[in-house]
Design a protein around this nucleic acid. Structure first.
Length: 278
DNA sequence: GCGGAATGTAGAT
DNA sequence: TCTACCTTCCGCT
């Protein structure tokens, strides 16, 4: 169950294990069999990630485009691999490692132009190189003109690629921003701080392979609470903490449906304050 | 065993 | 705004 940090980590993990030598490619479940046959025995040359999209490069043969969706999982193990279960869509095997893909939204063999088209429809990714420093600016151009709520904008992959439901909830909490505020009512300073924070939080997410957002001074140990790690594997302020007391102010964390996803926020720390300059 | 929920998206209405 | 899709896991009978 992935946000962008998971996908970038998977790109690295595949590169470390498989790049540079021939790979056995199969589709035990069958839905990727034709493409697997074309790829079998070819060498993985490179990997790439943009937002929640993972790309495995097989030179002139093309790219395997993977999107895990809500349920997809990629798991690694040693070689030789155990017999696959019947849900394995894609299996990669070399002398030392295997990787099994289950339940993805997308697993397809695509061409270089098709890959380019995917990049073109995605917004800037806090985890991709930002050579010109213009990525946060590109997102701001859309956000600052939109009447849509900032909560919805953060989940829109055309606006920012890679942020999911956990990072959305947590970054809005960390900056005291009411999720229902319109994009155009954010200040430039607020957005710059949110973008910089996403860059930092998500890089840390790649390193640790989990989402931790709680500042050191607010960790349970520092606050005199029993140490605790949330269900999804990291320490968070509001995600899936509905009706529990806010770590900072003690108010009950609230939850609501927004565009068919669960939203979480603290009604006191994320005060719907009047917007400066309007 | 069943129902529901889950870090997501595309396509129809 | 809805529905379909893909899988696993957990709580309830």
């Amino acid at each position: 169950m992935p946000e962008g940090h998971t996908i970038h980590r998977l790109a690295q993990d595949h590169a470390e294990r498989f790049v540079g030598a021939p790979v056995r490619v199969s589709s035990p479940q069958g839905k990727f069999s034709d493409s697997a046959a074309l790829l079998d025995g070819h060498t993985l040359t490179t990997t790439d990630a943009h937002g929640k999209h993972l790309f495995l490069g097989f030179g002139d043969t093309g790219w395997v485009h993977i999107h895990l969706g809500l349920f997809g999982k990629l798991g690694f193990g040693t070689a030789p691999p155990p017999p696959p279960t019947d849900t394995v869509r894609l299996r990669l095997v070399n002398a030392a490692h295997h990787a099994d893909l289950r339940g993805p939204t997308t697993c397809a063999l695509i061409t270089e132009p098709e890959k380019r088209a995917i990049h073109e429809r995605l917004g800037p990714d806090p985890l991709r190189g930002d050579e010109d420093g213009e990525d946060g600016e590109r997102a701001w151009q859309r956000i600052s003109r939109s009447r849509t709520t900032v909560a919805a904008l953060l989940m829109d992959q055309k606006v920012i690629a890679g942020v999911g439901n956990v990072y959305r909830a947590e970054v809005l909490f960390r900056h005291g921003i009411d999720p229902y505020r319109a994009g155009k009512d954010l200040t430039r300073a607020e957005w710059d701080a949110v973008w910089a924070d996403l860059v930092e939080l998500m890089h840390e997410g790649v390193r640790h392979n989990r989402i931790d957002t709680v500042r050191p001074e607010h960790l349970p140990e520092a606050m005199g609470r029993p140490p605790r790690v949330d269900d999804h594997g990291g320490e968070v302020y509001v995600y899936r903490r509905a009706n529990l007391p806010c770590h900072i102010c003690g108010s009950e964390i609230r939850t609501a449906d927004l565009a068919a996803r669960n939203l979480f926020w603290c009604p006191r720390c994320q005060d719907p304050r009047p917007v400066p300059g309007t």
